[in-house]
Structures are given as C-alpha cells and as structure tokens.
Design a binder for these strands. Structure first.
Lengths: 110, 110
DNA sequence: CATATTAATCGTAATATTGCTATGTAATAA
DNA sequence: TTATTACATAGCAATATTACGATTAATATG
C-alpha cells in the first residue's frame, strides 16, 4: 500500500532507515558535501552548484532540515545552512554500529 | 517528474545515494541485521522474524541482492542469503568518508 | 513607497515504492 | 506421479518522491 509499517520495527531500525532515506538522493548527498566543503553557511549558490531548479533544492533542504541534519538561519534576504553537529554525530554513530559488524563471520555460505 | 537526474551528479554521489536508498527502509535494515546476527545463511525465517508477507520480504531481498549487498545460493528447496563482504566493505568505506568529515569546522553559522 | 532579491510554498505531472493476493516454479517427499 | 515446501514473480492499489513553473513572503535598496 505504499506505506511503510514502521510499527513493527525497532526505534533504531526506523532511525537508521530515516537517515538513510535522507542520504538516498544524490542531490542531498551533494548538498551536504557542499555545506561541509564550504565550511560556512551557504544559501542560493547551491542552486548554481547543483543543476536543479530553486524550488527543488529548497525542497531537499527542507527535508534535511526537518530531519535535523542541517540548520538554517535567515540573514537578510538569504538563508544560511550548516550541519547540525549533534544530529550528524548521532547519524555517524548509528551507521558505524550498523556497518561495522564483523563481516568475516559471514562466510558460512559461499 | 518523479525521476532522479543522476547524470548531473558524480559517480560517488550516486553510489552513496543508491546504497543509502537500500538502507532507507526498516525492513531491509532488519534483514541485514538478522543476517549478520545469525552469522549463517538464513532463508524463510526472515518472514517469521519480521512481520511482513513472504512476497514482500522476497522483494526486499531482491533489491539487496541486485545492489550486491547480499548473495543468495539455493540449498535444496530453500535459499540461503549472506552478506557480500566486498560490497559491504565498499559501502563501509563510502559512508565513512562521507560521514566522517570534520563537523567542528562547521560552526560558523549558529 | 516601489522594486529587486532570495527563498519558501502551492499545485501538478511523472514516476517510484511498499505491500498484498494470487499464481508460478523448482526441488524434495510420499 | 502427486503433494508439499520454499521462494519468486505478476499484477494491483495506495501512497511517496522528484522536479518544475507559478506564486507568495520577507527583507533590502533606490
């Protein structure tokens, strides 16, 4: 039915999935990388950097902001975005835990 | 138009997004965690473990297999799945690189 | 005030995803 | 052979996502 049955999974599984979904679009990956690279608040130049229309970028930014991965503050007519360190570190922890399982054990089936 | 413009992004960005999309559903997170936990090939018990219908699980497994994150081999009437170590390590590397940027620098905008 | 700039929102079209039932298929068991 | 078991596939309905043009909201600047 196009709807995810979140209630049958653990909070951790849902949280990993939510963050992963945010990373699941190249535009959002590019946006986050650009924010990191510039080390500073950026605003409309994302539209130029990435070749997507302004409303599309704005929508991706909104998703990232809703999840808490980035923060945005208004400066005059423009809005500056930056990484939300707390949430980012949480994501880092979750993914490390999820990805760094000992895959050497899993060779029982070739 | 509901379609991702992959061509305007780098291979790395697209690869991160593809893998992240696979992690972007709690059922697939649960499946992967279960395969890791059991350390051995599992088959139909995923349907019991997770509360989804067999065709639904089968579909999620197919996605993970198509991406290369897991492998499956037939054993009698059942099919055993296991982590594809090569691909998993690639994912680990990509996500580490992506997530472990120094977020301390990014405090210029509060 | 009028106007420009910047970004958010609305509405829409195209496409993708999730999950199911029903059915098909391949291997084993009786 | 027939039945059973274990999965896969097809088809479908509900919903979500992606992307854009048009518009709106808010702040600057002349």
């Amino acid at each position: 039915m196009g709807i995810t049955k979140s209630e049958i999974f653990t909070d951790q599984q849902n949280e990993i999935a939510l963050i992963a979904k945010a990373f699941g679009h190249p535009a959002r990956v590019a946006i986050l990388q650009h924010i990191f690279k510039k080390q500073t608040c950026i605003c409309g130049d994302l539209v130029q950097e990435i070749g997507l229309a302004q409303p599309t970028i704005s929508q991706h930014l909104k998703e990232l902001k809703n999840l808490g991965l980035i923060k945005g503050n208004v400066e005059g007519t423009s809005v500056c975005y930056c990484i939300n360190k707390e949430k980012w570190d949480e994501a880092l922890g979750l993914f490390k835990q999820f990805l760094e399982q000992d895959s050497d054990k899993n060779t029982k089936c070739k």
